[in-house]
Structures are given as structure tokens and as C-alpha cells.
Design a protein around this nucleic acid. Structure first.
Length: 932
RNA sequence: GCUCGGGUGGUGAAAUUGGUAUACACGCCGGACUUAAAAUCCUGUGGACAGAAAUGUCCGUACGGGUUCGAUUCCCGUCCCGAGCACCA
């Protein structure tokens, strides 16, 4: 009987769906295991062969864990709000919901074809009101919470109000915006609007005016992680900085916890490192400099003096401060510009504003700046130093102002050189004639009370002095900014916020979800407002509702919780479900979410944890980053100005143009010339210069994309080879974490393996008869093959080395084939072992072998009990009191026997006789090789 | 520039983490079965040298050093490749 994979796969996929084989019940006596894939955005292009890589890996793991007796939750859903559907809607008028649902259907059928063990009863779609009810709910919770730095925990705003009423805001240690101190009496005297404005500064979801990434082409603001190199990640449009009032999430309040808790996660070092950099903690001091504007530009009164606070990690270098710098966007610019410098400053600010973010980044090497006219006083030396305005200081980090120490900071150095400012070296023996000395090492000189100390001693000593003088304090700064949470778009979650007399007011929880209204066209409104301005009656109780919508990461931040209890309309997740499923044990997805989704999710989870809605402080215990599968493109070489194509090996003899050719016209880099002629009308009469009668194509690894004609569709692979072959082959290509090009060439080998495996059950390798298994007892050699494989596969699955497991299967099947082994006691366990990788063929053979239930390890006590690995132990061989080498000896030998074996080995004798042994190779049982 | 990963046959990649380097697969060479092709199966396949042959010797894991009886693995230096961050004071 032939291996008819198409029939087998269709049969079992239908069986799994009808019997809900993979549905996970929450009330279970079994231990839980939660395996999650990053849910996809259903794009119009459908899945290519690269997308399922991670899904296959996690599916293997899920199936393996089920076999091991775990109650596995393995859900799938769709991140269904997003820009592409909306842009398509703007162009075509097609409602984004329609396109999104069509794409979801396409994804679903493609996923089903690969035979995943998803529990589809738990599917979520972020654009479904039943789902986004809970996104809105979480937003309201954030709106109604503030961050108490004393308890390091989010707490209800109602409690904060109670404190204000009792004692004002004195002693309230909150992560918040700038709020002046007020007493209880003052608080009570404030108007409603004033109170609302003050509370807004404290809320975790708050509205604030800050410099944001504005993308004119997309007509929306973007979060920091949605911008790369000054261009929007989606679409690649220029982004500029603009001051706007936007909803934000106070992620920065959680920066410390987000950083510290990283240590306990089983994530790759690379990913943790990325998050650490993104959060960017630096220890230093905040310090006040007196600055004086001798001649304010507005002329109101002259000689105004301020306390200007700066942040530095190098408090030890205060004696080397020769100027100060403030960011062009900072409020200091206005305060410090003198009448005589106003013209220059205005021009400079105008110039800076004109630049796009991209230009600014591209020109980081160019030093620009302007003198404000004001002077600052060095608190340690009393010396007057000029205050400059320069782009290289960022408004958003620290206080937006710095003390410049050109001798020991390369940026300050470049600035000082350009504008002829003084450079005072502070470290013994350093040479600052050509570059600054940035290293934190050496002995301090020219530094008053710090002179003679090492840098490491001087930093804390300087901070102590600063604190003693009351001009500053030790502090920690983070790069992580608050996340901008509103988007001027249609296809996203509406904010459950309305404006009552200009005060942002939450829509009552009981009214959620606040559903996205239908509108006619999806463009921004004529007055420049977001598309929701076009909605009829977008009001609540007659008050206008918020017109922007939430960003993509809103819906994806807590979806892993929703899978635990997807149909609950009373809570995001019930306490019962949360206490059972707890957290994601294994999360599989790409690194591209390192500084976006994976930060926001952790923040979101911690917030819910603070409020007691979830029981774990981290959402994703273990994370595996699957690599990208790139395309492998093929090229043909056309001789310029002709319709003649020359084979790759001969192309250097001609002047040629490289042209992408559809990889479906190429096999093993050999072009099907007839198919090529038919491919495009312009190639109909193409001529070829062949080598050895064949046209050899060139190739390159590129992104898989339609324009490169290198997209491989999983459906066509399933059609030709079957889903089991696809699954096995994707794993066989290399380690899951590694990026690698797709090359269909090797797939035959894997397919051949499955056929050989199949054949073992149909006549033990001698042609295909009927299904038959011998009841004979296996020989030692056969058992060894099986047990070796069991050990290998188990360790491989646990360590995600699926590629080597597949190899191990091939070896075992070849060996069993050579032995013509078709014994039940060997082959049936083999089915079980293979089932996570190639579930369809496994189910079929399992059924044929007379079992009724789905594949399970439970029927194989031998798997747990009888199997022991032929482990060896290391036996150290000592000589002259020093361990000279270790011999690996089988465990079955006891120590005395082992010693005897080693001492009696002729090789050891030679070694002891003084001849240096280069190599003693020992396998369990015997010494097989000694090299002198 | 800074921070992480990596460099092993013609190709994708293994190597129990210090113990026979190149498992497994692709590709290629040769062969079997075929009128033929496809499919399938078998043999060989890092390099150099010696030999009719089995086989043997030497060199080989980016490069140069070091530690070790022994290094793809550990240490130091150099060169490349990839990823992330990028004026973060």
C-alpha cells in the first residue's frame, strides 16, 4: 500500500476537528502547559512558507507535552486591527472588517492544511467587540490608577484623591508629570477642571502634551518602536517631531521592574539585552546649576536667575565643566535667550524644526549649536560658563539640559572643538589634544577635593558632596519613554472616553464595549480630525467621544490572558482560569517584537498584577525566537540589448543584466527553458547559450517577496509532498532560532524518509504489501536503535534541536530497514516518537496497528521505566598526583572494575611508562583508540 | 561608534559542551532495475601525497598565538559576516 499522504492528512485533519481532539479544559487534574505563538496579522498576501516555522516548532512541543501527560493550552487567533486593511479601505472603500475577515479565512485554511493542534474554540480576534471590550476595560483601569513609587505598585486614583483631601500632595511619591505642591485646602478649592488636570498628571493612562513622532503620510502619531531611522516601520514614510496632546501609557513608571524581572526569564540573551538597552538604566545624579540671563529677550526685567537641573552619570567631572547645553525643544530656550542673541537663536531653532527626524539622524556627525547669551555658575568652582543650545542634547532624556565636560565626553569634545570652548582635562596623564578621554578610569587631577581619587571613588564622593550641599541628589534615569497610545486612525479600538466640559471622563464599565461605529469613507475628516469625526453621532450622553483610536499593541498586550477564558463576558479572565493557566510556559515568535509588543505586554501584565487581576508578575516564562525564512531567488543573465540569455558559468564572457526569474521555472538551479519562454510574452523568442546542454541560473538569498518571484506557498508544498513532509522539512532545515533561506531542493530527502518509515509497516522494506507487524521479541540490536532514538528525540525536543531529531529518525529508519525489522515492539513506539513531528502519518499507522485512541505515550510504560540511557561516567586517570585525563566508561562497571580496566589497558601502561599519550578515546565498554 | 551573536566540505548543517571533526540531508560521480524516462535502490564523495588494490601518511573547523596528554569547543590578539541600539549626558 502506497503512502497516500493527501488522503491520510485530510482524513485526520477532519477527525481532529470533529472530535475537538485538542480542546483544552480548564478544570483538569493534569498539570498545565501553555504554549503560545505570536498571533499573526492577517495580511492580504496569505502565508508563505516562512510563516509557519515557529508554529510548527511550537506545535511539536505542544504535542510532545501532551504525550508527556500535560494538559496543554495551545491557542491561535488574529491580531486583526491594523494599518494595511485601513489603507486598503481608503483606496477601495471596502470596509476593513470585510478584508480582514477574508484574510482570516484564507489564513485559517492555510493553517489547517498543515495540521496544527490548535484549540480553535479559544480563537480570539482583536477587532471583535467581545474581545476589545477587555482592551477598553484595561485602558479604563489604567486611567483610574496612579503609580505609587513607595509601594512600587499601581493604585486606584480614588485613593489618591482621598490623600489629597486629607493632606494635599505632600509626601505623595508618584510617577507623574510636573505638579506643583498643594495642600488639602488648596485641593478642595480647585475647580473641577483644575482637579481633573492635576489628576491627569498622575494617571497611568494619561493625556499629555509631548513631543511625539508624527507621520504626515500616515496621518497619525507613532510610538517609538514603530519608528526606525526616522521612518515609519509600516510603509517607510518620514516621521517628524511635533508637540501634540496625546493619550499615553506611563510605561516609564515600570522601567525598573521591567528591567529587574528580566533576569528570571528564560529568554535568549540577545533579546534580554535588547530590552535592557531599550529600557536603558543609568545611575547618576541630578544636580542644580544657577543660570543667569543678564538681558532677557522679552525685556520684562533684566538679570533673571534660575535653578537649572541637569542629569549626569559623571558627577566626578564637575570641575571640568566648561559650558552647559540645553535642548532646542526645551523650555529653557525661551528663558535663557538674551536680547542680543535672540535673532541667532530664533534662526537656529527654526532650522532645527525644519529638519525631519531622518535628516537629524543622518546628520548626527555634524555639530550644530548656538550661544543663548546666558551664563551658568559651576557650583563647585563658582566659575561662570556659557549656556549653549544644541541639537545633540535631547529634550526627552534626563532634564533636557546637561553640563558639558569636553575633556571626558566625546560629544561635548566635538562641540567644544567646533565652537572654540575650553577643555580642562581631569584625569592624570590623559591626552585630550585629539580626542576626549571617556573611560571611567584613572586618577583625578585639577578636581579640588576629588584630586587624587580614582574615578570609581570620585563618582560617589562627588554625589555625596552634591547631596551635602543640597544642590542635587543621586538618581536613576531610564531611556524608556511613556508609550504614545492614540492613533488618528479608524481601524482600532475606540477610547471609552468622552469630554464633559472639556474634562476627559470614562464611559462606565457597564457600557463596554464601546463599539467602533461604521463610517462611509475611512480618510481623515476634512478638518484634519481623525476618521471617527465622520461618524454620525459619535457622542456619549450628548458629549463628544474621543476621536482617535488605540494603537496595534493595545489588542496584543493581553491576548494571552484572554485565551485562558475567551468567552467570559464578566471578566478579562476569571480568577479560576488565571490561577490554573497562570502564564505562558513557552512563547514562540520573532525578535522584531523585542522592543514593542514584548515590552508592552510585560507592562500590561504587571499593571494587572498590581491590581490583583492576574497572579503572575511576568507573562512569558520561556521565549524562543524563531528565525526568519528568507527566499532563495534565481537569476537569468540577459546579454544587454538582446533577447539572448547566457548560462551562469559563461556569463562573464558577456555584458549581461541580471534578471529575477520565477523559482517555479527552475529546478536545482537549472532553468526549464520552455517554461521560461511561456512565462512572459517578451521571452517568447528568447535564445539561450547553454553549458553542457543546460541553462544554469544564479541565485541569491533575499527576503521572500512577490517582486523577487521567490515566494513559496505552503499549500503547494502540502499538495505535492504533504503536510508531514513540510513540517519535518522546515525543522530539518536548521535550528529553529536561525534565519535561513528556503530551498525546496532538499525536501525530497525528508519525503523519502517518510516513505521509508511507511514501508517498514508494509513488509519491512521489501516492497509494499499489506500492513503487518511481527509479534516477535526484538533483538538487542533493534532495542538499541529504538532506545538511542528515544533518548535523542527527548533531549532534542526539550532543547528545540528539532533538526537533529529528524536526522536521528532517518538513521534509525535506515538501520531498521537494513535489519528488515517490522516488529510491533519496535515500530509502535516509533510511531509515538514521530507523532509530534509528523502527526498525520503517525495517527494513520497508529490506527492501522490496532489502537483506537489518538496517539499517546501512556501505552508505553517502557518509555518511562525500562529505558535507561547507556550513560557513561567520567573516570579520572591520575598521574603524579595530577588528573591527567578522564576516561568515559560505561555505568555498568563499578569503580573498582573501571580502575582495573583502565590500569590493564595496554594504552595506559604505555602512558605510565612515560610516553606522552596524545589521545585516549574511550567509548562505553572499551578503549578504542590511543594516539601517541 | 557601542552591545550581543556568528565564521566547520560544493550546499543546509552535526559533534554527548574538552575526547575518532564533517552525523543526517541536498548536490555531484559511478552502478542496478528499465527499450527509455520518471520513481526506487546500492556505492563513493574534505584536501594533498603514495599505492594496481585493500590501505597508509600528512594537512585540515576564518587567521595568528596560548593553555592542555588532547581544542571546532577554553584564553589573548587580528580579520570578516549578521543582528540590535545609535548624539541617552
Amino acid at each position: 500500500m502506497d503512502y497516500k499522504f493527501n488522503e491520510i492528512e485530510a482524513k485526520w485533519q477532519k477527525y481532529w476537528a470533529e472530535n475537538k481532539t485538542f480542546s483544552a479544559a480548564t478544570d483538569s487534574s493534569k498539570p498545565k502547559y501553555y504554549v503560545l505563538d505570536m498571533f499573526p496579522y492577517p495580511s492580504g498576501a496569505g502565508l508563505h512558507v516562512g510563516h509557519p516555522l515557529g508554529y510548527i516548532a511550537s506545535d511539536i512541543y505542544s504535542r510532545y507535552k501532551r504525550l508527556k501527560g500535560f494538559n496543554v493550552l495551545h491557542p491561535m487567533g488574529y491580531d486583526a486591527f491594523g494599518l494595511p486593511a485601513e489603507q486598503y479601505a481608503i483606496q477601495t472603500g471596502q470596509h476593513p472588517r470585510v478584508t480582514t475577515f477574508q484574510n482570516i479565512d484564507r489564513y485559517r485554511s492555510q493553517l489547517d492544511r498543515i495540521g496544527f493542534s490548535f484549540d480553535w474554540d479559544r480563537e480570539v480576534r482583536t477587532c471583535d467587540p467581545k474581545y476589545y471590550k477587555w482592551t477598553q476595560w484595561a485602558f479604563l483601569k489604567m486611567f483610574q490608577s496612579w503609580y505609587n513609587k513607595d509601594t512600587d505598585c499601581a493604585e486606584p486614583v480614588t485613593e489618591l484623591v482621598a490623600r489629597f483631601e486629607e493632606a494635599g500632595n505632600k509626601g505623595v511619591n508618584a510617577a507623574c508629570g510636573d505638579v506643583p505642591e498643594f495642600t488639602a485646602e488648596q485641593w478642595k478649592a480647585f475647580s473641577e477642571k483644575e482637579k481633573a488636570d492635576i489628576l491627569m498628571q498622575y494617571r497611568i493612562a494619561y493625556q499629555g502634551e509631548t513631543s511625539v513622532n508624527w507621520c504626515p503620510a500616515l496621518g497619525t502619531v507613532l510610538a517609538n518602536d514603530e519608528v526606525k531611522e526616522g521612518l515609519s516601520v509600516r510603509g517607510g514614510y518620514p516621521v517628524e517631531q511635533k508637540k501634540m496632546k496625546q493619550w499615553q501609557l506611563r510605561v516609564s513608571a515600570y522601567a525598573g521592574r521591567l528591567l529587574d524581572d528580566l533576569d528570571d526569564l528564560q529568554w535568549s540573551d540577545a533579546l534580554k539585552e535588547m530590552q535592557r538597552n531599550w529600557i536603558g538604566r543609568s545611575y547618576g545624579a541630578q544636580m542644580v546649576f544657577k543660570v543667569t540671563n543678564p538681558d532677557p529677550a522679552d525685556g520684562s526685567k533684566s538679570d533673571r536667575t534660575y535653578d537649572m537641573e541637569i542629569f549626569t552619570t559623571r558627577a566626578d567631572t564637575v570641575f571640568g565643566v566648561t559650558f552647559m547645553v540645553v535642548a532646542p525643544e526645551s523650555d529653557w530656550v525661551e528663558k535663557l535667550t538674551t536680547a542680543s542673541h535672540k535673532a541667532e537663536v530664533d534662526e537656529y531653532i527654526a532650522q532645527v524644526k525644519k529638519k525631519t527626524e531622518r535628516e537629524r539622524i543622518a546628520e548626527t556627525k555634524t555639530v550644530t549649536g548656538v550661544f543663548s547669551g546666558s551664563w551658568a555658575e559651576n557650583p563647585f568652582t563658582g566659575e561662570k560658563v556659557p549656556v549653549w543650545i544644541a541639537e545633540y542634547v535631547l529634550a526627552g532624556y534626563g532634564t533636557g539640559a546637561i553640563m558639558a565636560v569636553p575633556a571626558h565626553d566625546s560629544r561635548d569634545y566635538a562641540f567644544a572643538k567646533k565652537f572654540g570652548l575650553k577643555i580642562i582635562p581631569l584625569i592624570e596623564g590623559c591626552d585630550v589634544s585629539n580626542e576626549s578621554f571617556d573611560a571611567k578610569e584613572g586618577i583625578m587631577v585639577n578636581s579640588g577635593f576629588l584630586t587624587g581619587k580614582t574615578v570609581k571613588e570620585a563618582i560617589p564622593a562627588a554625589i555625596e558632596e552634591v547631596e551635602a550641599r543640597g544642590i542635587g541628589h543621586r538618581t536613576v534615569n531610564y531611556r524608556l519613554r511613556d508609550a504614545i497610545f492614540s492613533r488618528q486612525r479608524y481601524w482600532g479600538e475606540p477610547f471609552p472616553i468622552y469630554y464633559k466640559d472639556g474634562i476627559a471622563t470614562p464611559v462606565p464599565e457597564s457600557e463596554l464595549p464601546l463599539e467602533l461605529p461604521d463610517i462611509e469613507t475611512f480618510k481623515p475628516a476634512e478638518n484634519g480630525e481623525p476618521p471617527l469625526a465622520r461618524a454620525k453621532d459619535w457622542t456619549y450622553n450628548g458629549y463628544p467621544l474621543e476621536k482617535s483610536t488605540m494603537p496595534g499593541f493595545a489588542g496584543s498586550s493581553a491576548y494571552y490572558l484572554r485565551y485562558m477564558d475567551p468567552d467570559n463576558d464578566q471578566a478579562l479572565v476569571s480568577t479560576e482560569a488565571d490561577n490554573y493557566w497562570k502564564d505562558v510556559d513557552l512563547y514562540v515568535g520573532g525578535t522584531e517584537h523585542a522592543t514593542g509588543h514584548l515590552i508592552y505586554s510585560r507592562f500590561w501584565n504587571k499593571f494587572l498584577y498590581d491590581l490583583g487581576y492576574v497572579c503572575q508578575k511576568e507573562p512569558f516564562k520561556k521565549l524562543v525566537n524563531q528565525g526568519m525564512i528568507q527566499g532563495r531567488s534565481n537569476f537569468v543573465y540577459r546579454i544587454k540589448n538582446t533577447n539572448t540569455f547566457v548560462s551562469k558559468g559563461l556569463k562573464d564572457n558577456y555584458d549581461t543584466t541580471e534578471i529575477h526569474v520565477d523559482i517555479n521555472l527552475v529546478y536545482n538551479d537549472r532553468l526549464d527553458v520552455d517554461a521560461f519562454r511561456k512565462w512572459r510574452p517578451e521571452y517568447e523568442n528568447a535564445e539561450f547559450i547553454l553549458e553542457d546542454g543546460e541553462y544554469v541560473c544564479g541565485w541569491a538569498v533575499e527576503k521572500m517577496s512577490k517582486s523577487m518571484f521567490n515566494v513559496v506557498n505552503p499549500d503547494s508544498i502540502c499538495e505535492k509532498y504533504g503536510a508531514d513532509t513540510l513540517r519535518l522539512y522546515e525543522m530539518f532545515l536548521g535550528p529553529v532560532e536561525m534565519s535561513k533561506p528556503w530551498d525546496t531542493k532538499g525536501i525530497d530527502g525528508v519525503h523519502r524518509f517518510l516513505k521509508k518509515f511507511w514501508r517498514l509497516f508494509f513488509g519491512g522494506g521489501e516492497g509494499l504489501g499489506d500492513f503487518s507487524l511481527s509479534e516477535e521479541e526484538p533483538t538487542a540490536a533493534e532495542l538499541k536503535i529504538l532506545h538511542k532514538l528515544i533518548g535523542k528525540v527527548e533531549t532534542d525536543i526539550e532543547s528545540f534541536s528539532y533538526n537533529t531529531s529528524v536526522s536521528a529518525f532517518m538513521v534509525a529508519v535506515n538501520e531498521l530497514g537494513a535489519l528488515k525489522c517490522n516488529k510491533r515492539k519496535i515500530l509502535v513506539p516509533m510511531i509515538v516518537l514521530l507523532s509530534p513531528f509528523a502527526p498525520h502519518i503517525a495517527e494513520e499507522l497508529w490506527q492501522l496497528s490496532g489502537h483506537s485512541e489518538s496517539v499517546s505515550f501512556a501505552d508505553f510504560p517502557m518509555y518511562q521505566e525500562e529505558y535507561t540511557r547507556e550513560d557513561s561516567f567520567e573516570y579520572p586517570v591520575s598521574f603524579n598526583g595530577k588528573t591527567r585525563f578522564k576516561l568515559s566508561l560505561p555505568k555498568s562497571l563499578d569503580k573498582e572494575e573501571a580502575e582495573k580496566a583502565v590500569m590493564e589497558a595496554p594504552e595506559t601502561e604505555k602512558y605510565l611508562a612515560g610516553k606522552p599519550v596524545k589521545k585516549v578515546i574511550v567509548v562505553p565498554g572499551r578503549i578504542i583508540n590511543v594516539v601517541f
